[in-house]
């Protein structure tokens, strides 16, 4: 009976956050294995700079942060152009112009991979869902009504080899934005391994001690 109670309680407690996650009725996300190597993230940074950052800000990432994803000092200097080393990455379109063009200021991308369920998968799915519809107009079939025009002209890449190439770029952008949303994730997981390892040892010692002390009662 005790075990039923235990499992009920724990599964019940886990149910709530899971139910939260199920509550979304979002579009189905692409199922891909991301290449999260630093080369991929770095390629993503260049691709994002040349496309996303034309309209979007990346205000929580400063140029100097690029050093963390294996940029060299001179690569950062080229990347930033005239912008200051410690200034945030800003879009090249002013908010006023963007407002006129799109009817809204494009959202900042620093936290996009955290602000959407699915994170990098969401970004990848969004960017690979542009199609030319029957009327010859480009639309996003999974996110209809999105104001962002097909930024990488994915819809027109019908030739398979070039589409594959573009998909690679899109996955690079997705993992770059994933890094931008959580630049401390690598450090966190690394430290986490040690912490959990230490705790397992400590808990085992506590267990031995507890057993030893309680054995006096037998």
């Amino acid at each position: 009976m005790r075990y039923i109670l235990t499992s009920l309680l724990f599964s019940g407690l886990l149910c709530f956050p899971l139910a939260n996650a199920w509550a979304s009725s979002d579009a189905p996300l692409a199922d891909i294995d991301f290449d999260r190597s630093s080369e991929s993230i770095k390629r993503g940074a260049y691709a994002a700079k040349n496309t996303c950052m034309i309209c979007h800000n990346l205000k929580y990432i400063k140029y100097l942060n690029l050093l963390e994803i294996d940029f060299t000092q001179s690569e950062v200097d080229t990347f930033r152009g005239k912008a200051a080393f410690d200034s945030p990455i800003k879009s090249s379109t002013s908010p006023e112009v963007a407002q006129k063009l799109f009817g809204m200021v494009p959202p900042d991308l620093s936290l996009m991979a955290k602000a959407r369920r699915g994170g990098a998968r969401y970004i990848y799915t969004l960017l690979t869902s542009y199609q030319v519809n029957n009327e010859g107009v480009v639309e996003n079939h999974l996110f209809p009504g999105i104001k962002m025009p097909d930024p990488l002209t994915y819809a027109y890449r019908t030739d398979e080899a070039r589409q594959k190439e573009l998909k690679q770029t899109i996955q690079d952008v997705a993992v770059f934005l994933e890094w931008a949303a959580d630049p401390r994730a690598g450090e966190r997981r690394h430290l986490g391994m040690y912490v959990i390892g230490y705790l397992i040892v400590l808990t085992f010692l506590f267990y031995l001690l507890k057993r030893k002390i309680w054995s006096r009662l037998d």
């Binding site: 230490y198 040892v201 010692l205 001690l209």
Partner: peptide, 24 residues
């Protein structure tokens, strides 16, 4: 049972656990 810690008796396991926990 009530007074298991006899004076002068030291336990290896307790020392190790104490050191590991203290480091933590």
């Amino acid at each position: 049972v009530k007074n298991p810690e006899k004076p002068g008796r030291r336990y290896f396991l307790e020392t190790v656990t104490g050191v590991v926990a203290g480091a933590g």
